[in-house]
Design a protein around this nucleic acid. Structure first.
Length: 197
DNA sequence: TAGGCCATCTGGTCCT
DNA sequence: AGGACCAGATGGCCTA
């Protein structure tokens, strides 16, 4: 079963209809399919090291009786969808690039990236809010640590970091707790709403 | 080997 | 009509 796809060139996208019958291959020649699937968006994919190339599974076969015109539309739709997802992933990479890097260079998963970005934005806005309040409000009493917290947090806002326990299980607030000058931003009990996603 | 993550295909729905 | 968006399904890759 696997052998059906195992010999598909991982560098190409010629993985559609490879299992269809003669009837199909008659009208939709592999060359045509290849042309359809090798419009622009494949370039970026080919620039990547061929480490993770997904081949379509059995489900990726189309109805053998499908008309050529319909098949062509499907192929184009597949191509657009692939391109769309590549764009989405590109945006996700851009988002990763502006987030504080993990100490061990671990790449955040998609969901981790979104959650972390959410928390990061929250932490930054919170820093600004506290900083503004500290500037406009009268000096707090000596016992209050709001000002000291804000100042320490803001003075070192250049390199926030977060703990990295288990990349695959971002389930604890500590995983995404920002630490700035020994101030853990997760002081807010409901800091991480990710469990409500 | 199981589970997590991911890429891809696919058909449905909505929008232009 | 065709494209964008979405969610479900499926199988490959990787790691514990």
């Amino acid at each position: 079963m696997d052998s059906v796809f195992s010999d598909v060139d991982s560098s190409s996208c010629d993985y559609s209809f490879t299992g269809t019958d003669d009837e199909d291959s008659r009208d939709a020649s592999p060359a045509h399919e290849h042309a359809l699937l090798h419009q622009e968006p494949q370039d970026q994919e080919q620039q990547e090291p061929l480490q993770k190339k997904r081949r379509r599974g059995p489900r990726a076969r189309t109805d053998p009786t499908m008309h050529v015109a319909k098949k062509s539309r499907r192929l184009k739709a597949n191509d657009r969808e692939r391109n769309r997802m590549h764009n989405l992933n590109g945006a996700l990479d851009a988002l990763r690039s502006v987030l504080p890097a993990l100490p061990d260079d671990t790449k955040l998963t998609k969901i981790e990236t979104l959650r972390f970005a959410h928390n990061y934005i929250w932490a930054l806005s919170e820093t600004i809010r506290i900083h503004d309040r500290a500037r406009t409000a009268p000096p707090p009493s000596p016992g209050s640590d709001a000002c000291s917290w804000a100042s320490s947090a803001c003075s070192s806002a250049s390199s926030p970091s977060y703990s990295t326990s288990e990349p695959g299980s971002p389930a604890t607030p500590e995983d995404y707790g920002f630490v700035q000058a020994d101030v853990v931003y997760s002081y807010r009990p409901t800091f991480l709403p990710y469990d409500s996603y």
